[in-house]
Simulated assay, not measured.
Amino acid sequence: MRIVKLVMAALTLAAAALVSTVSASPAQAADCSGSLIEHLPVGSLGYLDIYYSSSTGNNCARLNSTGSSYGESKYMSVRLNACSASSTSVCNVLDTDSDSGYFEYYAGPVTVYGKGRCLRATYQIKSISKMTPIFHCG
């Protein structure tokens, strides 16, 4: 009987350790490095954050869910394009990264090399879809 209690105690501790590892908060699960350069709302459902890292030259974007949609499985998509810096009216795509699917908390992160380039992002939560102008050229 004592061995059974010891085994049960060990299994309980192992299960608790697994749950604490798996249940990391969404913010901890997918971070972008660098400085926040854009914070764009998606109605009342969420926001798109775009970061730039001067040490790597990378831009990173993550679409975050908020409000009543936070924790609810819903369609989300984020795409980040790096465009040629020669035009702010036409995005000649040099690099792209995207993430889409049914998520509870966020889509992304997605990363493109942005030094000396312009950016354009498209993003969607449920039926609200947006596209940025071509911006952050440099």
Rank of each mutant, 00 (worst) to 15 (best):
R2E: 14
R2Q: 00
K5M: 14
L6A: 06
A10C: 06
T12P: 04
A16M: 08
A16T: 06
V19D: 00
S20L: 02
S25A: 08
P26A: 12
A27C: 01
A27P: 05
D31V: 15
C32I: 09
C32F: 07
L36N: 10
L36V: 13
I37Q: 02
E38W: 05
H39K: 13
H39L: 03
L40Y: 04
S44L: 04
G46M: 09
G46D: 07
L48A: 06
I50D: 05
I50L: 10
Y51K: 10
Y52W: 05
S53F: 05
S53I: 09
S55N: 11
N58D: 12
A61F: 01
S65C: 02
G67V: 13
G67H: 04
S68F: 05
E72A: 08
E72D: 12
K74Y: 05
M76D: 04
V78G: 00
L80G: 08
N81W: 01
S87H: 12
S89Y: 06
N92I: 10
N92H: 11
S100D: 13
G101M: 13
F103R: 09
E104M: 15
G108N: 11
T111K: 12
V112Q: 09
Y113H: 12
G114C: 12
K115R: 14
K115D: 15
G116Y: 02
L119Y: 07
A121D: 13
T122M: 08
Q124K: 12
K130W: 00
H136K: 13
C137F: 08
